[in-house]
């Protein structure tokens, strides 16, 4: 019985499963608010707080930046407790799914995948960064993460005006785009009230445009620069959901790298690391689905193997993928 279940899971049509899972998560986090769903304000992905009507919870980065911009005496006094409990809640949410929040839950991630589907339907080929650009750009998210901490702290210390408040939210494409799904175009504006707001909202509009164009031509374009992704990685060690690799079973065929939306080379080339989730990974699990070597890649939840590469599953998915294509033509 368990072996039959095991087989059914390993044979899963991941593409379809993910599509529906992501669609459901998108509806939940973008429209759940209308059904009075409120999952708090420490969610580890972009359930955007600016989508005031529809949101089912708030992305942790918004309250975090607000808290950090409190005056220093407060921040390092009683308000610090609030920061810590906020972080603890965020952490508890996070460790359940690890970066699976990116690959399965994040509305902004889902939106990018939809743009990818659109491009595929139009028969347009995707672009890649290539190895050099990848190595240069992979640090950007850590820089953004650092700025996201430093700017609010500078505000709290009186070094910057409050016009620079919640700087990341101001430039995040989620703020501009996600409220549009609940017919709220208010974020589609540039705020001319001060230099700070002008710069940030101007950047925000620009980045939102870049997001739409970028995600159309490059799979998961934005995730590469996402400071939430950087923050995830820094605290991912104790997470329950894990991507594991057995280097001994790997033939280095590169299938996993070939399908990786994030162009992560290590997934194919690193034979030593058992815990193979890298900083750019979104835990979309496409690599596991694309691996024909039994057990070379697997997904564990609390050390229990829940999905692994199998020959049968690989062939099933490939035949199905090829079939889908034949139907479309």
């Amino acid at each position: 019985m368990t072996s039959r279940l095991r087989r059914a899971v390993d044979n899963v049509d991941l593409q379809r499963f993910r599509f529906w899972f992501q669609a459901a998560a998108f509806v939940l986090f973008v429209y759940g608010g209308y059904l009075a769903v409120d999952l708090g304000n420490s969610l580890p992905m972009f359930s955007c707080g600016y989508n005031q009507e529809g949101r089912a919870g708030v992305c942790y980065l918004l309250p975090l930046q607000h808290q950090l911009s409190r005056p220093w005496p407060q921040l390092f006094g009683w308000a610090g407790i609030g920061v810590l409990t906020g972080f603890a809640t965020f952490f508890l949410w996070f460790i359940v799914l690890n970066k699976g929040w990116c690959g399965f839950m994040c509305p902004l991630g889902t939106l990018q995948d939809w743009l990818t589907s659109l491009r595929k339907r139009l028969g347009i080929r995707y672009s890649l960064y290539g190895e050099q650009a990848f190595n240069r750009l992979t640090w950007v998210k850590f820089v953004l993460l650092a700025l996201m901490f430093l700017i609010p702290l500078a505000i709290g210390g009186g070094l910057l005006s409050h016009d620079w408040g919640a700087p990341f939210c101001q430039i995040c494409p989620g703020r501009v785009i996600l409220p549009l799904f609940t017919a709220d175009p208010l974020q589609l504006t540039i705020d001319y009230s001060s230099i700070g707001t002008l710069v940030l909202t101007g950047l925000g509009m620009f980045i939102a445009g870049l997001f739409l164009v970028g995600a159309f031509i490059k799979k998961r374009f934005f995730c590469f620069f996402c400071p939430m992704s950087a923050l995830h990685y820094l605290i991912s060690k104790p997470a329950l959901l894990k991507l594991k690799k057995d280097g001994d079973k790997c033939t280095k065929c590169g299938n996993c790298f070939n399908v990786c939306d994030m162009e992560i080379r290590a997934i194919a080339d690193d034979l030593e690391r058992k815990d193979i989730m890298t900083d750019d990974c979104t835990l979309c699990l496409k690599c596991v689905a694309a691996c024909p070597e039994p057990g070379a890649l697997k997904v564990e939840f609390a050390r229990i193997n829940i999905f692994q590469a199998t020959e049968e599953g690989f062939l099933k998915r490939m035949n199905k993928g090829a079939g889908h294509d034949a139907c479309k033509r």
């Binding site: 595929k120 028969g123 080929r125 995707y126 033939t251 490939m318 993928g321």
Partner: peptide, 14 residues
């Protein structure tokens, strides 16, 4: 005959 190719997007170039 052992190793098998994978295709992510079924477009000729890819």
């Amino acid at each position: 005959l052992y190793d098998m190719p994978v295709v992510d997007e079924w477009l000729v170039n890819h």
